[in-house]
Write a protein that binds this DNA or RNA. Sequence first.
DNA 1: GTTCATTCTTGATCGCGATCAATGCGCGCA
DNA 2: TGCGCGCATTGATCGCGATCAAGAATGAAC
Lengths: 218, 218
Amino acid sequence: MPVGLSDAEIEKVDTLIGARRKIPRGTPLYLSGETFQSLFAIRTGFFKTEVISEDGREQVTGFQMAGELMGLDGIGSGQHNCDARALEDSEVCVIPFNRLSELSREIDTLQHHFHKVMSREIVRDQAVMMLLGTMRAEERLAAFLVNLSQRFVSRGYSATEFNLRMTREEIGSYLGLKLETVSRGLSRLQDEGLLSVQNKKIRIHQLDALKRAMSPRC
Amino acid sequence: MPVGLSDAEIEKVDTLIGARRKIPRGTPLYLSGETFQSLFAIRTGFFKTEVISEDGREQVTGFQMAGELMGLDGIGSGQHNCDARALEDSEVCVIPFNRLSELSREIDTLQHHFHKVMSREIVRDQAVMMLLGTMRAEERLAAFLVNLSQRFVSRGYSATEFNLRMTREEIGSYLGLKLETVSRGLSRLQDEGLLSVQNKKIRIHQLDALKRAMSPRC
DNA sequence: GTTCATTCTTGATCGCGATCAATGCGCGCA
DNA sequence: TGCGCGCATTGATCGCGATCAAGAATGAAC
């Protein structure tokens, strides 16, 4: 994942990658409470991470796609802090955390890269706090779709046409809304002509307008 | 901060700590957009961190107290991603990030400790997402107070009697509520006999009941 | 001690999103 | 092909928290 390594270093980093694991749709990659040993880099597929509180509340904390790293929350306590579940048939690379630690002591580029990845996760979480703390339902939905769009684009897929892998309920959990509100919001954005929805299929017609819809009084 | 180091290692880690800086109440420790160079360990005092979005929304993302580390969000992009402001006269240790990186390549205990700190920040953020995504106003308030209480206790202060350093508005921003709702919530908890409030002075009478008030239908 | 601005409290009302409920749709499976 | 279940849509109503508004308390400045 990091760039600007010498050939020798690249070789070492390659040894970092343990087995590949196939995760069928609906299957957990790890569950909260399991002992933490490895990080997971998504090769293909789509995941959700979900925290479950003592009193039974469930909160989807993120959706992860190819190229992203999962499991960082387990480092602190030595056990996973959330459930990670595949939303479609997926494949991950297992990255033993011990090996990553050792190697990042040798290769400072790797060390720095790893620190950046963790830090960006914190920044991402802060953006979600902003969303949950200050946005209205339709703004949240717009922000969610724009975010998805950007992530698809950066992976070479269409910015304006994609399939949601998650249910309305999972979107709602992530956005702090009920599934009915998500559904209504999508219908509304459709009525306004910004996009069309058919089940999980999203086609964005006015990406610029959708971005504006993230802000108040539009 | 880490434990279990040899004397030689402790000596090295000591050199990590750059200058101390006094931050008067109301003053920024850093602002969003400034180039990131150092982390800051709070020696004394109290801070808030706040993100401001492009369209002007403000979201308090946390309150930090003695012993906690600030600035982790800046590693990813090389510039600070939020404002950090002292809520009372405070003092911090400046930790140049370059030096920390170098040293954590030599001392694996330090490395591991640092990784844990970052990971715990992610877990903390997930807990805030849960709060913002699933809890009602009074539950959020109870969770906030219980959290503060626990953090005071672990620093040797009273679990049941403390002063809030932040305004109702700042609490509201953090909890995704308006200041009036915070005020009403505190009054209500007072009426129920769980605590008494006088301005910033909080006295918790029934900590166990306050913990129960974090859960639905109590 | 007086002034003034900031912060807090409390009341009245509004509206967004939750809730309750019914129906429709799509897909896997027999 | 038809059945059944999970998922989605839409309508009607409710209630929590936002909003608007007024007044009180606090504390800093001089």
